[in-house]
């Protein structure tokens, strides 16, 4: 699925205005509705990219707080092949974590897709890293070695939800492309 598959790009929110769209759109959504989707995403990572855990090394089992700064919630990621976890938490109830990775939703998607250099994002202050830097660096390198296939591979395992999930991904990528 690529950006061309978005049916009509005219109706996409413009990049500048997009910044607050995820926060506003998802604020009313109860987190319990998101949890099964998030768990499905992390299970897909385990299924599609088992090699990621070898490269992750001592980062396996570490708890990463994924903070897309324009979402109304944060996500706790634990990449453990036996007990993977991706769970949303309200911003006022941050869970215990080993490392925090923060940036806009599009910045983090860019990293997952391998389209941008995380060091450059760090230099320009678009990416914030805190906590266990060693685990975060291992995660960055492990994800980078998936050659940008991670998101598509995970979405392709969504069963009946594959098409709508792929549409959401395509819309986000189109907005990101316009931002560049």
């Amino acid at each position: 699925m690529n950006a061309d598959s978005v049916d009509d790009a005219r109706f996409l929110p413009q990049p500048g205005a997009f910044r607050d769209v995820p926060r506003m759109a998802l604020a009313p959504v109860p987190l319990f509705l998101l949890q099964p989707i998030l768990q499905r995403i992390v299970a897909g990572v385990v299924r599609c990219h088992p090699e990621l855990f070898i490269r992750l090394g001592e980062g396996v089992g570490k708890r990463f707080l994924i903070d897309a700064t324009n979402l109304p919630f944060v996500m706790l990621l634990r990449l453990d092949p036996d007990r993977p976890l991706l769970r949303a938490y309200r911003r006022g109830q941050l869970p215990a974590h080993d490392g925090r990775i923060a940036g806009s939703l599009l910045t983090l998607l860019d990293l997952v897709d391998g389209n941008t250099d995380s060091d450059a994002l760090f230099f320009t202050r678009k990416l914030v890293v805190e906590g266990d830097t060693g685990a975060v660096v291992a995660l960055r390198n492990a994800m980078d070695d998936t050659e940008g296939r991670l998101a598509d591979d995970v979405v392709s395992g969504f069963g009946p939800l594959t098409w709508p999930a792929a549409q959401v991904l395509a819309v986000l990528r189109e907005i990101r492309r316009r931002c560049q």
């Binding site: 202050r125 914030v128 805190e130 266990d132 830097t133 291992a138």
Partner: peptide, 16 residues
């Protein structure tokens, strides 16, 4: 500068 020895602290004002 091994990553295990590197720490970043950012305050609420964005100073790092």
């Amino acid at each position: 500068s091994p990553a295990s020895h590197v720490h970043y602290l950012q305050d609420e004002g964005g100073n790092l």
